[in-house]
Amino acid sequence: MGTIRFFIDGREITVTEGETILEAASKNGIYIPHVCHHPDLKPAGMCRVCVVEADGLLVPACRAPAAAGMVVKTGGNLVNKMQRLAVELLATNHHDDCLACGKNNACKLQEVAQYVGVDKQRLTRFQAQELRPVDDSNPFISRDYNKCILCGICVRACNEITCIEAIDYAFRGYAAKISTLSDKPLQDSKCTSCGECMVRCPVGALLPKGGVQAAYEVKTVCPYCGCGCGVYLSVREGKIVGVRGDRESKVNEGELCVKGRFGYSFVNHAERLTAPLIKRNGRFEEASWDEALDLVANKFREIQAEYGPESLGGLSSARVTNEDNYLFQKLLRSLGSNSIDHCARL
């Protein structure tokens, strides 16, 4: 593929052939407002917020490829009118609840509305949608139809990234909505709650339940399986309040599964074991690590003496790292046993 040169607002831009106007613009630090486009997904061109004038024609920048010598205008009377109407129409069907919304300040609709500018009078002239109940069926994700602007990013994320295809558009025209099969609650669908749709939702239609703002983030590796997905833990008051995938991680490029993304509540759970327990007189009692390890070592010795070393076996976990598993088998072999396995095979 060769490179081509074209112009955005008079600036000469060089891009690889086949790149869209929006890609070319953002690579060169030129902002074009857009809502339904997400860099991880195929362009849809539905929201029409990213329209620009290319050689005199209105085109969606997210879909239209840049062409050699093309003259693109990101503003002007026609573009401004179209962008403003597009944003106003989206805003009309968006429950205006910004201060109480989990997406406040990170909302694409706020961003484009601020850039494009909306006419308050026209917004009130338009008919707002009737409020519908929020789908709270999923334990991790809350789904608020009143904020959904039907950009389709969630549908594309589910189809293109996770390939689960749990959601799609249903119904027609103004009645169109994102729906599971037979319009059942999310929890009763084949959704795996991975949350890939949720993290890409440009507005507050898909939000983590109980999500709060972090005080700081800690970069680490997900402890759930041997994949080793890169994560950032959101921490507030010394507790984990959220997890996000590390887009820089070569392992997962930001993607996570339901466990990695939502399975952190055990860390601070009240019933979590924080010290070894030893059963004495039929009851578990807290003990020190030295006490516990001594007890286990003594029991091993007794079993070895009575039944021979092969009577011992070890069961490791897929959740621990390779290094830990290596040490575990070394321990078992030093005790004279070759019976080692891990839980994921059970």
Partner: peptide, 13 residues
């Protein structure tokens, strides 16, 4: 309005 497919914003809304 009844027959719009509901895909693009200008037509649907």
């Amino acid at each position: 309005v009844h027959e719009s497919c509901g895909q693009c914003n200008p037509c649907r809304n």
